[in-house]
Amino acid sequence: MLTAGSKQPAVIKLDYASTHREIVEACKKGDRQAQFELYRLYGKAMYNVCLRMVKNETDAEDLLQNSFVDIFTKLDSFRFQSSIGAWIKRIVINNCINFLKKRRLPLEELDVERHDHSPQPAVTPVVIGLSVEAVKSAMMELPDGYRIVFSLYMLEGYDHKEIGEILGVTEATSKSQYSRAKRKLQEILMTRKQSSNY
């Protein structure tokens, strides 16, 4: 999958952009087997993206389904200027954001002014005994806006400028939102750790 801040030389990047080129070309012609192949390659990862965005399995599956129908319908406009994976992921994420907006789960936490003016702790807390399961479930306790910014930055590999574009906020908002989200996540994890010690 995609990783943030690629430092690979240009040649490899170029090669990367043409990954699965044959499959994509066949998909453009409406070849169902190739479409299934593309779904197999990216469906699972994109399902996890949806789950992190909307939290609920049924909604995540609906979004995955609609996104892939969109992907195959819009594929003609894909010109290999980015990797197919990045292109797919952007469609999925946009659909998730639109879904959240429609459900009027406003991303109000993104309105920085209204939120949380508690001072930053002087020392970054070190959470001991981390596990993937613990982090995942703690993420689900975060408010929507926090969870989304945290996911986009830490797991989907976007930088703050890109997150700003996706969410329609400034880069600075994304940054401050991210650090708040991370702090909140650390708090949740540490509270749990403490309560599980008793």
Binding site: G43, Y47, L155
Partner: peptide, 21 residues
Amino acid sequence: REAFDDARPSLKVWADIDRAL
């Protein structure tokens, strides 16, 4: 990072995509 993508969509999703297409 990889371990965060452990959930699997049900097979129904592809069947529905196939039908929609």
